[in-house]
């Protein structure tokens, strides 16, 4: 494991901590897209099927369980917790996320490395993760007030993807990692989707202003 990979995973973990902090202590999920959160549950469920078939390390297994558990927990809070669910910005969370699932299924059936259940589902999870942030970004654009925790959450999620790109560059150069078009291109697309958000996040941070995305 290289430093970029570890930092990427830790940033991912931290993003979830920040979101849980908002949900559990502020008791609010305002500005958080339930659709994006549901897509992440599907991403982790389809990607981590190899929990049952292959062992990599204690770290790998533990992180997979944490991502699965927390993503399901977050969706539970947003849907069923009697206080939290009332703060959900339902009317603004309008992105047609079924379309993203359909698109990823079709793409995974067409473009994959091997045609077996685990490989196609794994590929599907990469395509879906690449676009899963879209409902969240659309919701942010509609939000008049983006609170600090929500902004930080999305920033950390984007930082995690950017660090994974550095991790691939490192593995390619230092560990004889072969070309892996499917995860790399999906990862590049995923990171590129954050470009606009990064720009406004950093700008607001530099000017010490409240984060606001232009509509």
């Amino acid at each position: 494991m290289n430093l970029f990979r570890l930092l990427g995973d830790m940033t991912h973990l931290l993003s979830i901590v920040v979101l849980l902090l908002k949900i559990r202590t502020v008791k609010s999920c305002a500005g958080i897209s339930l659709k994006t959160q549901e897509l992440y549950v599907i991403v982790f469920l389809t990607r981590y099927l190899d929990l049952f078939t292959k062992y990599y390390s204690v770290y790998n297994t533990a992180m997979k369980l944490v991502f699965l558990g927390t993503s399901i927990g977050i969706v539970w809070y947003m849907r069923y917790h009697k206080v939290v669910k009332q703060t959900y910005s339902k009317d603004e969370d309008t992105f047609k996320h079924y379309f993203l699932i359909l698109l990823s299924i079709i793409l995974a059936l067409l473009i994959h490395r091997a045609f077996d259940v685990i490989e196609v589902l794994w590929t599907f999870s990469l395509y879906l993760e690449a676009v899963a942030i879209l409902p969240q970004l659309v919701l942010l654009q509609k939000s008049r007030n983006i609170d600090t925790l929500t902004g930080d959450y999305v920033f950390l999620l984007g930082a995690y993807r950017a660090l994974y790109i550095l991790n691939w560059v490192y593995r390619f150069l230092m560990e004889n990692h072969k070309f892996r078009w499917i995860p790399w291109i999906s990862g590049l697309v995923q990171t590129a989707l954050y470009a606009d958000f990064f720009y406004y996040y950093i700008k607001s941070w530099k000017n010490r202003e409240k984060l606001k995305l232009p509509a």
């Binding site: 990979r5 190899d50 292959k54 072969k178």
Partner: peptide, 10 residues
Amino acid sequence: KEQPQSHDEL
């Protein structure tokens, strides 16, 4: 054989 190179990522 070389498959785990990206499957070991999260």
